[in-house]
């Protein structure tokens, strides 16, 4: 599984969405898929799964608006480790 699939499965499983209903550009917050608790869980998951740390500066809309954005964010974090 690549990062994109891992993130998509996590979101699908925590929002009880059908995986097929999510694509890489689905706006996960604008469309109200996640509430604030869901977001905290997502950050936790990313940090544990990919062994990265997120700082306050990372938590901006651009990095989290879609699965594609989240995957790109993780890639850049891993590269800069």
């Amino acid at each position: 599984m690549n990062n994109y699939e891992i993130i998509r499965n996590f979101i699908a499983s925590n929002t009880y969405k059908d995986v097929k209903a999510l694509n890489e550009t689905t706006l996960i917050f604008k469309e109200g898929l996640f509430d604030s608790m869901g977001f905290i869980m997502l950050i936790d998951f990313i940090e544990q799964q990919f062994g990265i740390k997120t700082s306050d500066e990372d938590l901006i809309e651009k990095n989290f608006e879609s699965i594609k954005a989240i995957s790109a964010f993780i890639d850049s974090k891993i590269q800069n480790k």
Binding site: F29, K30, G32, S36, F39, I40, E57, L59
Partner: peptide
């Protein structure tokens, strides 16, 4: 209203938009 929002202290106020900006 949501004290646990405190977890997002710092410069990331943009976060609010994610959930309460709907």
């Amino acid at each position: 209203l949501y004290p646990y929002i405190g977890q997002f202290q710092g410069k990331n106020r943009m976060m609010f938009k994610f959930f309460y900006g709907y």
